[in-house]
Computed example of a mutant assay.
Amino acid sequence: MNLTDIAYGTWSGGKFMHFGKPLEDERFRSVIRHAYNSGIRTFITADVYGVGRADQFLGEALEGIDRSTYCLVGTIGHDFYTGQRVGNRGYPRFTDPELRSPREYADYVKMATEKSLERCKAEKFDLLMLHNPDERGYTRTEVWEAMVKAKDAGLTDRLGIAPGPANGFTLDIVKCFEDYHEAIDWAMLILNPNEPWPGNLALPAAEKFGIDVLTRVADYGGIFWGDVKPGHEFKAGDHRTYRPEGWVEHGYAKLEKMMPIAEKHGLTPIQMATIWNLSHPAVKSVVPTFIDEAGEAKRYEDKINELAATPRDLRFSEEEVAEITRIGDNTGCMDLKGASKRHETSTRPDEWPMRDDLVDIADRYNLGQSW
C-alpha cells in the first residue's frame, strides 16, 4: 500500500519529543488506534524514537488490524545499537566511520530494518526511509546500495529519504535526487504555509525525478491547530521555547491574513495548511504533529478527527497557493543545516562545508548563492 494523503507520525504525543503534555502509555496506543478508526491509513515511525519504543507502541496499537488496510513507514539511520548518545546531538548515524566502513552498511541496514519490523509486528514496510542522514548518507553510493538490498530482500516495497530534524539540506537533497532517483520513491520535507522556505525549493527537482514528497510540521509548532495563540505559555522543557522570541505572535498574525481563503472553502487552519501542502504537485502526503497542549486546548482525539475530516478532493488554485505563500514567506529567516559556506570543516553530523558540485546544483536549479 502506498502512502495516503494524510498520515500519522509516532513523534506525536510528546512522549519521545519534548512538546506539550506527554501521553501516558495506554493513551498513546489508543490515539493511534483512534487515528485508524478516523480514516487515517498511513503510520510513520522511527526506530530511534524511544530507542525502539515508538515502533513497539505502534505495533501494539495496530495489532489485529488487517495489515493490507494501512501503509507502514519505517525510518532508520541513527545507530543506537552500537553507538553512544552524545548529548543533544543524539545517536551517531550508522555511516559514522568510527562505527563501521562502507562495506558494512548493508549488514547494518538489514539488521536495523528487521529489528524495527519485529517491534512493529510486521513482515515488511511499505516505505523505508533513510532518517536524518549525515553527508555520507546523501553522497555515498554504498548507502543507497544498502537500502536497495533491503528492498530486494523483501523488507520494504519502497525507499525514501527523510532529512532533518532541522530545516535546510536543500542543495544536498536535490543532488541526492539527481544521483539516486532510481532508488528513491519518497522524500520527507518540512513545509507549511508559515514555512514555505526552503522546502519549496526542492519540490521542482522532486517532481522532475518522479519522487513523491511527504511534508511534515504542517501545523507550524501548533499555530495551525488553533490552540497556540499570542500569550501561550509553554511548559518548561518544551522544545518550542527555543524558537525566536515572538514567533507565536508573528505566526498567528500571518494565519489571520490567510483565514479568508480557508473560510472561503470552509476549512479550519490545519485543514487549510494540509490542502496548501497537497496543492503542490510533488506533495502527495501530509503529516502534522499532534500535540496535547498544556492548559486549555483542543483534545488530542478531536485534532485527529479534524485532520481526518479534511476534504480529500479539494486543491487550492495556483493563485491561492501563491497568495498564502506570499503571506507566509519566511525566506532567509534561519541558518540552514547541511552544506553551508559557514563551515570549513564538518564538526556536526548535520552541518558540513559547501562543495563545488552543490554550487553547480544551486546554479542549475536557480537556487541562488546565499547558502
Rank of each mutant, 00 (worst) to 15 (best):
M259N: 12
A218D: 04
P288E: 08
V228H: 03
V248T: 04
H34V: 06
R312G: 13
I211M: 14
A146W: 05
G59H: 02
T215A: 09
E319L: 11
P244V: 01
R103M: 06
L128F: 09
F290W: 07
E318M: 13
G64K: 14
N132G: 02
I223R: 00
L255S: 02
R348G: 14
A308V: 06
P230N: 08
D47H: 05
R136C: 04
L62Q: 06
P353A: 15
P288Y: 00
P349N: 06
L267V: 01
R348F: 05
Y81T: 05
E318K: 15
H18F: 09
K298M: 04
W352A: 01
P102W: 07
G251I: 10
R158E: 11
F57N: 03
K341C: 13
Q369F: 08
L336T: 15
M111E: 14
H280R: 06
I275H: 00
E178W: 00
T241Y: 01
L201S: 05
T10G: 03
K124A: 14
V283T: 04
V148Q: 14
E245M: 08
A308I: 04
R342T: 15
N330E: 03
D172C: 01
I44A: 03
N305M: 06
K15W: 02
E142D: 13
Y36Q: 06
K235D: 09
Q369M: 10
N37R: 10
N2Y: 08
V283A: 07
L307I: 07
D134K: 02
T289R: 08
G64V: 14
T325G: 00
Y300K: 08
H250F: 15
D227Y: 10
V109I: 11
E249V: 00
I161F: 07
P92W: 03
E60L: 11
G164V: 02
R326E: 05
F316N: 02
C176Q: 03
L127Q: 04
T289P: 06
C120P: 07
K149Y: 14
M334S: 12
G266M: 09
E123Y: 14
I324F: 01
R100W: 10
R299Q: 15
Y91R: 07
Q56P: 10
